[in-house]
């Protein structure tokens, strides 16, 4: 059973997640004509910038976030931006798209100048997220849990962040029982993806370095 507070929390987070998406004019560019490697680099950089802006707009709506210390807010966003980006991309790539669009997007990433050794784990992650068949509420809550990770570098008031995260964890756990009654391990599987995300994020700096060199 959900408490009234939990119902309200879920509604606010899901609405904000649904509302704050990458603008269509940015995503449309990805499907346009062929680009050179340099143009691909610029385009994917523009996408990344847009993703961060969307992430911040979404995060502002998480109840309690704006009451945290301002520098802690920055530290949380800085520490989670890459992971949130991977999550959002996974969900975007797993959506049903018109025929041919997935291929165009994948080709663009393969031709972006990023080394194949980094692309493979990224697509493996996207696939493993797709296999979970998360509902929108679960996607929104999982992203929120990623953002509210208390042990990010430079976070001062970790207990305050932990309190906010625990509320969302409890809500997600209940959601999993409700939506996946046949899979008692579903909640644990979702949390397992967060560990995978951390590993991906860890290699992100290396990936960027190899990208620049190429």
């Amino acid at each position: 059973e959900f408490t009234t507070e939990q119902q309200a929390l879920m509604r606010v987070i899901t609405d904000a997640y649904n509302k704050h998406q990458i603008p269509q004019d940015v995503t449309k560019k990805l499907l346009q004509d062929q680009y050179s490697t340099e143009e691909n680099f610029l385009l994917l950089t523009e996408m990344a910038t847009s993703q961060v802006q969307v992430l911040v707009e979404f995060t502002k709506n998480i109840p309690g976030f704006l009451s945290l210390d301002r520098e802690d807010q920055i530290a949380l966003l800085k520490g989670s931006a890459v992971e949130a980006m991977f999550l959002r991309s996974a969900q975007a790539l797993n959506k049903k798209m018109p025929i041919g669009h997935t291929e165009v997007l994948e080709e663009r990433i393969h031709k972006s100048g990023i080394s194949e050794e980094f692309i493979k784990p990224m697509f493996n992650f996207y696939k493993s997220i797709g296999e979970l068949h998360m509902v929108l509420e679960e996607q929104a809550l999982l992203t929120t849990i990623t953002i509210l990770t208390p042990d990010r570098p430079y976070v001062k008031d970790q207990p305050a962040v932990e309190r906010l995260q625990e509320n969302v964890l409890d809500l997600l756990r209940k959601m999993c029982v409700l939506h996946h009654p046949q899979e008692p391990q579903y909640f644990a599987r979702l949390l397992g993806r967060l560990t995978e995300l951390r590993t991906l994020s860890h290699y992100h700096a290396e990936m960027l370095a190899s990208w620049k060199v190429n």
């Binding site: 802006q53 502002k60 800085k78």
Partner: peptide, 21 residues
Amino acid sequence: PANNLGLEDIIRKALMGNLEE
């Protein structure tokens, strides 16, 4: 945001926008 500085700039700017509102 190809480096951490760029990333922090974008975050700060997006957060401050909220303050001005």
